[in-house]
């Protein structure tokens, strides 16, 4: 069957308008004004960031907003050497789970302004904010090392 059709293209294009949801919406508004808000669970009292309106372990609504500092500790990280369509970052780049001071869950973000080989678990980092802050996690350009001593003990039990 030399004339068999082996491939035809059927492109799919669908446009969605996604509401952020109540918790993410408040979180994003905070980011646009340069503030990081977590939510405290009324039952287990843990502070979740980014907040999602529900405590993932208790299954109850989380309403109480907690203003968090923009500094924290890297719990774990990876260095990415692979290019893919959705991003336009220079390779290699590092992404890390960051335990913000005063939070109980980690936030995932870029680590820059440091050679990737020097990034460590327990490293202290601080947010570098964009000048033009969108209502999105992109309001934070990346996190960078603060130069403080590593705080491995503070991330115990967080990865």
């Amino acid at each position: 069957m030399s004339d068999a059709v082996k491939l035809f293209k059927a492109p799919i294009r669908l446009e969605y308008t996604i509401p952020a949801g109540r918790a993410t919406s408040r979180f994003c508004r905070g980011l646009a004004s340069g503030r990081l808000y977590g939510q405290r669970c009324p039952e287990c009292k843990k502070v979740n960031v980014p907040p999602r309106g529900a405590c993932p372990t208790c299954g109850v609504p989380t309403e109480e907003e907690v203003l968090l500092p923009d500094s924290g500790t890297i719990t774990t990280f990876c260095i990415i050497n692979i290019a893919f369509a959705a991003q336009a970052l220079e390779l290699p780049y590092a992404c890390a789970s960051i335990l913000l001071d005063g939070a109980d869950s980690t936030l995932f973000h870029l680590i820059q302004e440091v050679p990737v080989a020097e990034i460590r678990m327990g490293m202290r980092v601080r947010a570098v904010w964009a000048e033009n802050k969108l209502a999105s996690l992109e309001a934070i350009r990346h996190f960078k090392p603060t130069g403080e001593p590593d705080a491995l003990a503070s991330i115990e039990g967080h990865f």
Binding site: I18, A20, T24, C28, T75, T76, F77, C78, I79, I80, I82, A83, F84, A85, A86, Q87, C95, A96, S97, F108, H109, L110, M121, A135, S136, L137, E138, F159
Partner: peptide, 30 residues
Amino acid sequence: EAMWALSPKFPFQPPLLAGAGGYFAPIIRA
């Protein structure tokens, strides 16, 4: 395109992960 399906341009967050490997690498490091 599985990579696209796994890491589309999610709203409200920067596109960082580059597929499943980006999620699991930090766990392996730990």
